[in-house]
Computed example of a mutant assay.
Amino acid sequence: MAGESTKIDVQRLYNDESGESHFIDETMEVTAMNFAPPAPPIYVSDGVPAKQVVYLFLPAGYTGDFHPAPRRQIMTLISGSLESTVSDGETRRFSPGNTMLVEDTSGPGHSTRALADCVMVVSQLD
Protein backbone atom coordinates (compact mmCIF):
# COMPACT_ATOMS: atom_id res chain seq x y z
CA MET A 1 0.00 0.00 0.00
CA ALA A 2 2.84 2.46 0.78
CA GLY A 3 3.33 4.85 -2.14
CA GLU A 4 -0.12 4.18 -3.61
CA SER A 5 -2.40 7.19 -4.04
CA THR A 6 -6.10 7.90 -4.30
CA LYS A 7 -8.27 11.01 -4.44
CA ILE A 8 -10.74 12.46 -1.95
CA ASP A 9 -13.53 14.98 -2.56
CA VAL A 10 -13.04 18.51 -1.23
CA GLN A 11 -15.48 21.45 -1.21
CA ARG A 12 -13.91 24.86 -1.72
CA LEU A 13 -15.39 28.34 -1.32
CA TYR A 14 -13.42 30.94 -3.29
CA ASN A 15 -13.51 34.41 -4.92
CA ASP A 16 -13.32 34.86 -8.68
CA GLU A 17 -11.35 37.74 -10.23
CA SER A 18 -14.35 40.10 -9.84
CA GLY A 19 -14.65 39.29 -6.11
CA GLU A 20 -17.80 37.16 -6.31
CA SER A 21 -17.78 34.03 -4.15
CA HIS A 22 -18.54 30.52 -5.41
CA PHE A 23 -18.56 26.90 -4.27
CA ILE A 24 -16.58 24.35 -6.29
CA ASP A 25 -16.18 20.60 -5.85
CA GLU A 26 -12.57 19.46 -6.29
CA THR A 27 -10.49 16.37 -5.65
CA MET A 28 -7.27 16.15 -3.65
CA GLU A 29 -4.64 13.46 -4.03
CA VAL A 30 -3.65 11.53 -0.92
CA THR A 31 -0.71 9.11 -0.78
CA ALA A 32 -0.28 6.04 1.42
CA MET A 33 2.53 6.46 3.94
CA ASN A 34 3.63 5.44 7.40
CA PHE A 35 1.92 8.30 9.23
CA ALA A 36 1.81 6.84 12.76
CA PRO A 37 4.07 3.76 12.97
CA PRO A 38 3.70 1.01 13.97
CA ALA A 39 0.11 1.42 12.69
CA PRO A 40 -0.31 0.37 9.04
CA PRO A 41 0.09 3.01 6.30
CA ILE A 42 -2.81 5.41 5.72
CA TYR A 43 -3.58 7.91 2.96
CA VAL A 44 -2.24 11.40 3.73
CA SER A 45 -2.45 14.72 1.86
CA ASP A 46 0.37 17.24 1.55
CA GLY A 47 0.67 19.36 4.67
CA VAL A 48 -0.73 22.89 4.87
CA PRO A 49 0.93 25.31 7.32
CA ALA A 50 -1.58 26.51 9.93
CA LYS A 51 -1.57 29.54 12.21
CA GLN A 52 -3.95 28.14 14.84
CA VAL A 53 -6.89 25.81 15.37
CA VAL A 54 -10.05 27.02 17.10
CA TYR A 55 -13.44 25.58 17.99
CA LEU A 56 -16.60 27.50 17.08
CA PHE A 57 -20.07 27.13 18.56
CA LEU A 58 -23.00 28.53 16.58
CA PRO A 59 -26.35 28.30 18.39
CA ALA A 60 -29.40 27.24 16.39
CA GLY A 61 -30.82 30.27 14.59
CA TYR A 62 -27.46 32.09 14.38
CA THR A 63 -27.27 34.08 11.14
CA GLY A 64 -24.13 35.74 9.85
CA ASP A 65 -25.02 38.05 6.96
CA PHE A 66 -22.63 38.27 3.99
CA HIS A 67 -19.02 38.61 5.12
CA PRO A 68 -15.60 37.57 3.78
CA ALA A 69 -13.63 34.93 5.67
CA PRO A 70 -11.09 36.52 8.07
CA ARG A 71 -8.34 34.34 6.51
CA ARG A 72 -7.95 31.11 4.55
CA GLN A 73 -9.26 28.32 6.73
CA ILE A 74 -10.40 24.73 6.75
CA MET A 75 -13.73 24.36 8.53
CA THR A 76 -15.03 20.96 9.69
CA LEU A 77 -18.53 20.60 11.10
CA ILE A 78 -18.46 18.26 14.12
CA SER A 79 -22.13 18.41 15.10
CA GLY A 80 -25.28 20.23 14.06
CA SER A 81 -26.43 21.48 10.69
CA LEU A 82 -25.85 24.72 8.81
CA GLU A 83 -26.22 26.30 5.43
CA SER A 84 -24.03 28.79 3.65
CA THR A 85 -24.87 30.99 0.67
CA VAL A 86 -22.23 32.46 -1.64
CA SER A 87 -22.56 35.75 -3.50
CA ASP A 88 -23.43 34.00 -6.79
CA GLY A 89 -26.62 32.79 -5.04
CA GLU A 90 -25.79 29.10 -4.52
CA THR A 91 -26.70 27.67 -1.10
CA ARG A 92 -25.26 24.45 0.34
CA ARG A 93 -26.18 22.55 3.49
CA PHE A 94 -23.53 21.01 5.69
CA SER A 95 -23.85 18.10 8.09
CA PRO A 96 -21.43 16.53 10.59
CA GLY A 97 -18.22 15.41 8.94
CA ASN A 98 -18.40 17.94 6.09
CA THR A 99 -15.22 19.92 5.56
CA MET A 100 -14.72 23.02 3.44
CA LEU A 101 -11.64 24.97 2.36
CA VAL A 102 -12.73 28.61 2.77
CA GLU A 103 -10.81 31.12 0.65
CA ASP A 104 -13.27 33.99 0.03
CA THR A 105 -11.20 36.53 1.96
CA SER A 106 -12.37 39.55 -0.05
CA GLY A 107 -15.50 40.75 -1.80
CA PRO A 108 -18.99 40.23 -0.40
CA GLY A 109 -18.12 36.78 0.93
CA HIS A 110 -20.78 34.35 2.12
CA SER A 111 -23.61 34.12 4.64
CA THR A 112 -24.01 31.40 7.27
CA ARG A 113 -27.11 30.14 9.08
CA ALA A 114 -27.09 27.53 11.86
CA LEU A 115 -30.08 25.20 11.41
CA ALA A 116 -29.22 23.45 14.71
CA ASP A 117 -26.57 24.02 17.39
CA CYS A 118 -23.22 23.64 15.58
CA VAL A 119 -19.74 22.78 16.80
CA MET A 120 -16.94 23.33 14.30
CA VAL A 121 -13.19 22.90 14.24
CA VAL A 122 -11.49 25.65 12.24
CA SER A 123 -7.86 25.40 11.12
CA GLN A 124 -6.76 28.94 10.30
CA LEU A 125 -4.07 28.80 7.65
CA ASP A 126 -0.96 30.94 7.18
Rank of each mutant, 00 (worst) to 15 (best):
F35R: 14
A116M: 08
F66Q: 10
V48W: 05
A69M: 09
I8K: 06
S111E: 14
A2I: 15
F57V: 09
F66R: 11
D46Y: 01
D46M: 06
P68K: 06
D126Y: 01
R72D: 14
T31I: 12
D25H: 10
T31W: 04
V44E: 00
D46A: 11
E20C: 05
H22V: 02
V86P: 13
C118I: 03
R12S: 07
F57E: 09
Q73M: 12
T6D: 00
G47D: 08
G47N: 06
V48M: 15
V48G: 03
E26Q: 13
M33D: 12
L125T: 08
P68H: 07
G19E: 09
N34M: 07
T27V: 09
V119K: 10
A60M: 12
I74G: 12
A50H: 00
Q124R: 11
S106Q: 11
C118Q: 01
E83D: 12
R92W: 07
G3Q: 05
L125F: 02
C118L: 01
Y55L: 14
D117M: 03
F66P: 09
E4H: 15
P59E: 11
D9W: 01
D25M: 04
T76F: 02
S81T: 03
V119A: 01
F94R: 13
S111N: 07
S106W: 06
R12Y: 00
R71N: 14
A36C: 04
P37K: 14
S21L: 08
E26F: 05
E83N: 14
I74V: 15
H22M: 03
A36E: 13
Y14G: 04
G61W: 06
G3I: 10
M120K: 00
M75T: 10
E90I: 06
D16S: 09
E26S: 11
R71I: 04
S87H: 06
D65K: 13
E20N: 15
H22E: 02
T6W: 00
S87D: 03
C118F: 00
P96A: 07
V44A: 03
T105P: 01
P108A: 04
P38Q: 09
Q124E: 14
E4A: 14
P108M: 03
D46I: 08
T63R: 12
